[in-house]
Amino acid sequence: MVKEIERAGIPVVHVCTVTPISMTVGANRIVPAIAIPHPLGNPNLDHEEEFKLRRKLVEKALKALETEVDGQTVFEG
């Protein structure tokens, strides 16, 4: 899916847990997520903490979209 969006000419960031699959399917901007059943959340945190965590991840995704890449890049850390 990610490749088809890219092919249409729209920059896309793939937020996913299993980054190796993302690499295999050919995403170019990849942001590692938390876990498969809750990629942008962590049910062990309280609501406010969890929201902060999610905001950080989304900010990282936006950062990735603002970053020029010349090949497949995983935005770690």
Binding site: V12, H14, C16, T17, V18, P39, A61
Partner: peptide, 10 residues
């Protein structure tokens, strides 16, 4: 006219 996409996967 979407400028960018965030795609999330589980």
């Amino acid at each position: 006219h979407v400028d960018a996409v965030i795609l999330t996967s589980t």
